[in-house]
Design a protein around this nucleic acid. Sequence first.
DNA 1: TCTGGGGTCCTAGGACCC
DNA 2: TCTGGGGTCCTAGGACCC
Length: 417
Amino acid sequence: MLALIDGNSFYCSCERAFDPSLRHRPVVVLSNNDGCAIARTQEAKDLGLKMGEPWHLARHKPEFRDVVWKSSNYALYGDMSRRMFEVLHDFVPSVEPYSIDEMFLDLVGLQGDLAELSARIRATVRRVAKIPTCVGIGPTKTIAKMANRVAKADRDGPGICDLSTAAARAEAYKTLPTSLVWGLGPAAQAKLKGAGINTVAELVAFPADEMRKLLTVTGLRTQSELQGIACMPFALVPATKKSLAVTRSFGRAIIEWDEMREAVASYTARAAEKLRSHGLVASAVQVFMHTNRFNGDPPYANQATVSLEPSADSFALIGTTVKVAHSMWRDGFRYAKAGVVFIDLCRAAEMPAQFFPTRDPVRSAALMHTLDTLNRRFGRDTLRPGGTGATPDWSMRRANVSPAYTTEFKDLLNARA
DNA sequence: TCTGGGGTCCTAGGACCC
DNA sequence: TCTGGGGTCCTAGGACCC
């Protein structure tokens, strides 16, 4: 049996954990560059603020006058996620983090009533990690996920939905709409509707071969999961990443190559850091840049993918990505976004040896290790490769970001007694 | 002034091979 | 009269997720 626990309005709850003035108020956390709404408290949802709504438009609407907005602060949210994980891990040995705010728990072998256990877990996460949550229980991930959504939808309910028994499922499926099912997006919903399927009960009863024709193997898998047949294994060890990206919109349009070069170099340095932190090397990289698609600027978009000598060396990678970026740069456009995506990743330890390496692998690893150690100890960007900017004026807007309460000594809260 | 970022999986179709 | 078929690999694009 599995449970899915997930933080309510997670980013907003993280902000509230350190700022009591946000309690009971409508709060929204914005995407990078203070662009769109990506997390809303219940109070903000009740006002009609939509997920993904561009804030520069929404903020002028009178109904959102009292909404408190925050720039996103991933250092804080990532650390709060880690705290949530630790609390859960004290209760349940097997925890699989699914996203920053969701974790699957393997309940097999645990004693007692699962709903009662879930209630205790939930209360402890609230008290210790300061995050309100909902819990869904079921025999497969898809069922647990759906149960979680049911729990969330019942605003005055207990925050827990238990679909562990076949009887509970049969009863619930009769009325649950397919839109609550994980993995069936707008395209799938339209097809289901066309086939006369509206409830989860109808979805489960649909002939398997027709389901395959309608929604391919993905839909078939979802159907099996809803029938209680697990197709998505519980994974205690996270799967190795297949790609790793750093992509950003700029705070203002970039029109000079020098600025683009600096941006691409900075994104590459950051992505290379991430590679190393996962113990990975990349064998190929994709670089892209494009203009603003929304504002009527003359459009230009380009991307290129090149193979690499497998590496996680910032200097080597910057050399390549800047060259690739230069090959697609065209003067006269107003660039809004660029990005670097590493693909064909493999573990550094299993990296195929090069016959003619262009860099001494031992010296490269030593240099990168020193770079990472110093930056971990003294703060990000203490040391950075030449040609990368610390906080250049094209960097993203974060006009209302909260302090890094949990990851910077200088931002620690003061307590007075 | 102003519209996010980072992932995974699946399929169709072309290139290529024998 | 009449011009194969099957397999693999790669890529682009779609769909979905948080």
